[in-house]
Nucleic acid binder design. Structure first.
Lengths: 174, 174
DNA sequence: CATGATGTAAAACGATCGTTTTACATTTCA
DNA sequence: TGAAATGTAAAACGATCGTTTTACATCATG
C-alpha cells in the first residue's frame, strides 16, 4: 500500500466520520502518518483530495453492486453497512457540505448518482427479464431510503427495504 | 417578525444552502441584517443557533405530517419539497457534519427522528385501522428515500415512493 | 560517488474562524 | 427626564484554516 493509497484511505475514514469541512489538514496528516508537504505533493489540495476520495469510494461501492437480482442488491447494501457502517451517502453529504460551489465535487456526485441509477435499472431489467423504469425508480428510492434510515434505525431499515423491494418486484413479474 | 425569528429564519436558509460548518458568522450576520453583538445576544453561540434552527425546522416539518393516511404523507412530502426544496434531511446532515461531537445536536437529531418514526407509525395505524410495525418501517424507508433521491431525481422520486407505499399499504389491508 | 526522487519536521504565510469588546445611537417607559 | 434596554459599526481576540517554505534525511540508481 503506497503513500497515496494510505492517504486516500485515511481521508475517506476521517471525511466520513467527522465531515469534509470539519476535517482539517492537521488531522489528515496525523491519520495518514505523513508530513503536510508529502500530503500536498500527492493530493494537490483539499478539494482534489475530496475528489480522489469520492472516486475511490465510487469504485469500491459500485464493485459491490455487480449483482443480477433486486434481492442481491439489498443483500449487498446489508454487507456494505455491516462492514463500513453508514452515516448517510457520502456523495450527497459532500454535495451538501460544499453547497454546489466546488464544481468538481458537484460533477463527481452527479457522475456517481448517474452510474448508480443506471446500475439499479440494469439489475431490475436482469431480474424481470425486461426493462421497468417505474420499478427501477421505486427500487432506487428504497435503496437510498435504507442507506439513510439505517443511520438511526440500523439493519432493520435494510431488512424492511429488502422485503418491500421483493414485494414490488414480485408484483411487477406477474 | 422579531429579531430572533429573523435570525433563525436566515440561519436555517444558509445552513441548508451552504452547510453548517461552511457557513460562517459573517455570512449569518449579513443575511440576518444584524451586528454580531446582537446575534450573540440572541443565539448564544453557533452550536446553540444550530439547535434553535433544528428545533424550528422540527416544528415546521412535523406540523406538515399531521395527516391520517399514507398517501397524504407522501403528498405532504411533495408539498414540502415543492416549497422548500431538498438537499437531504437537515437533521442527518447536522449529525454528519458534527460527527457525533456536540451532544446537543446529536440529541436534537435523535429526538426528531424518534418523533418522525412515531408519527409514521401513527399514520400507518390510522390508515389500516390497526398497528403494523413492518409496514410502518417500510413507509419510513420510502419517505427517507424519497427525500434523499429527490436531491438528484426531483419530484419523480416522491411519485415513485408514493406509488410504492400505496401498493404496499393496499397489500397490507387485505 | 553523486544525483535525483521521496520523505520528515517544523516554522511561517495570509485568511478566516467563532467570539468578545469598545464606543456610540436610538427607543422605551417609570 | 433620565436610566435601562436594545440596537449598530467596527476593531480586536486567540485559534485554526488551507497552503507553502525552509532545512535536512534517506535511499535507489546512473
Amino acid at each position: 500500500m503506497d503513500t497515496t493509497d494510505k492517504l486516500i484511505a485515511a481521508a475517506e475514514r476521517l471525511f466520513d466520520r467527522y465531515g469534509f469541512v470539519a476535517t482539517g489538514m492537521d488531522r489528515l496528516t496525523a491519520a495518514a502518518g505523513m508530513s503536510s508537504r508529502t500530503l500536498y505533493k500527492h493530493a494537490g489540495s483539499k478539494t482534489q483530495l475530496m475528489e480522489r476520495v469520492l472516486s475511490e469510494r465510487d469504485r469500491r461501492f459500485m464493485a459491490r453492486l455487480r449483482v443480477r437480482s433486486v434481492d442481491a442488491l439489498f443483500a449487498a447494501l446489508d454487507d456494505w453497512i455491516r462492514i463500513e457502517g453508514t452515516r448517510g451517502c457520502l456523495f450527497l453529504r459532500a454535495a451538501a457540505e460544499t453547497g454546489g460551489d466546488a464544481p468538481e465535487i458537484a460533477e463527481a456526485v452527479r457522475a456517481h448518482k448517474t452510474a448508480f441509477q443506471d446500475q439499479v435499472a440494469r439489475i431490475v431489467a436482469a431480474d424481470l427479464g425486461r426493462e421497468d423504469p417505474d420499478l427501477a425508480e421505486q427500487v432506487l428510492v428504497l435503496f437510498e431510503g435504507a442507506a439513510h434510515a439505517a443511520v438511526y434505525r440500523g439493519a432493520d431499515a435494510v431488512r424492511a427495504a429488502r422485503k418491500a423491494a421483493s414485494t414490488l418486484t414480485e408484483r411487477a413479474r406477474s
